[in-house]
Design a binder for these strands. Structure first.
Length: 279
DNA sequence: AAATTGACCAACCGCTTTCCC
DNA sequence: GGGGAAAGCGGTTGGTCAATT
């Protein structure tokens, strides 16, 4: 039993593609279009596996492909998308016109992964320093950890947000992921039944109008007190919230502004946002 | 100049998902 | 609804090349 191989392995070329093969494949696809990859090599006269043809076309030969020189904007977008989506390279690539999942994956593995990891280490080191300086921040440190890419990744197929419960108690935000993603100090519960609505294309696209929002992350350590001032609540999704260390900012903000007025204002805003966006 | 190391990236592999009968 | 084929996806491998020793 078992699956039949996608193509017979005997007599097929492997390894790097030659210019001639590229030309043949490109011409064939121009004439006949994409698809039917299994039969394509035979029809095109290529000694290649259909899978290999598909990959070569998608990752290299497509006319709309941008190659190299990933801009700082793209880089930031990749980082934020990765924080949001995890290793869903195809989804990430889908948000970067002209970029392929393979290219982004490679770029991540060779550049960004290390970079992000270093940043996290710096962050946790500075947190440790804060803690040693006497700040009772064990919960904060823990929640920072929760905000690491791996912990805030939401599988797109995992859960669908269907209900939101806002508990009016201040500075606790709880995200229910697949009925369970909760921090220990959270009160706002998002209920998902299959996958987060926030993760669908529409929401991700809105999340990715990130330029106005992304500064929050970059500057949050210094500017949490301005958070609500700059915060355009209609522009973001829950994905943005997750992506922006929202719970952390929320907590910082409220800790720094121990005021019932602010708290109730904030909770009202949050409830309004959730009710509009999520329900 | 030769050997070694590491970064980069194209391509492969195997598994999962989707489609179609 | 079940099963097989096709397509898609993400992890891994391996070749190439530049930098370093």
């Amino acid at each position: 039993m078992g699956r039949s191989p996608c193509c017979a392995k005997e007599g097929l070329n492997r390894g790097a593609w030659t210019a001639h093969e590229d030309k043949v494949l490109t011409q064939y696809i121009k004439l006949h279009g994409e698809g039917r990859w299994r039969n394509l090599p035979k029809k095109a006269g290529l000694k290649r596996c259909g899978k290999s043809c598909r990959l070569r076309w998608l990752n290299y030969l497509r006319p709309d492909i941008k190659r190299g020189n990933i801009s700082p904007d793209e880089e930031e977008l990749i980082i934020r998308l990765h924080k949001l989506l995890g290793n869903r390279w195809s989804l990430i690539a889908g948000r970067l016109p002209g970029r392929t999942d393979n290219e982004i994956k490679n770029y991540w593995n060779t550049n960004l992964g290390k970079k992000v990891h270093d940043q996290q280490q710096q962050r946790s080191a500075s947190n440790l320093k804060h803690h040693k300086n006497g700040e009772p921040n064990s919960k904060k440190a823990k929640s920072m950890d929760m905000a690491s890419p791996s912990s805030l990744v939401y599988r797109t197929k995992a859960a669908k947000c269907t209900q939101v419960f806002i508990n009016p108690q201040p500075h606790k935000v709880l995200l229910g992921h697949d009925h369970q993603h909760c921090t220990e100090e959270t009160n706002t519960v998002l209920m998902f039944d299959d996958k987060p609505a926030a993760m669908d294309d529409d929401h991700i696209n809105r999340t990715l109008s990130f330029s106005s929002f992304s500064n929050i992350n970059a500057d949050q350590e210094n500017s949490t007190s301005d958070f609500l001032v700059d915060f355009d609540i209609n522009e973001i999704s829950i994905a943005s919230l997750l992506n922006s260390d929202f719970p952390e900012i929320n907590r910082d903000y409220l800790n720094h502004n121990n005021s019932d007025t602010i708290t109730s204002h904030f909770v009202d805003e949050t409830a309004q946002f959730f009710s509009e966006e999520m329900l």
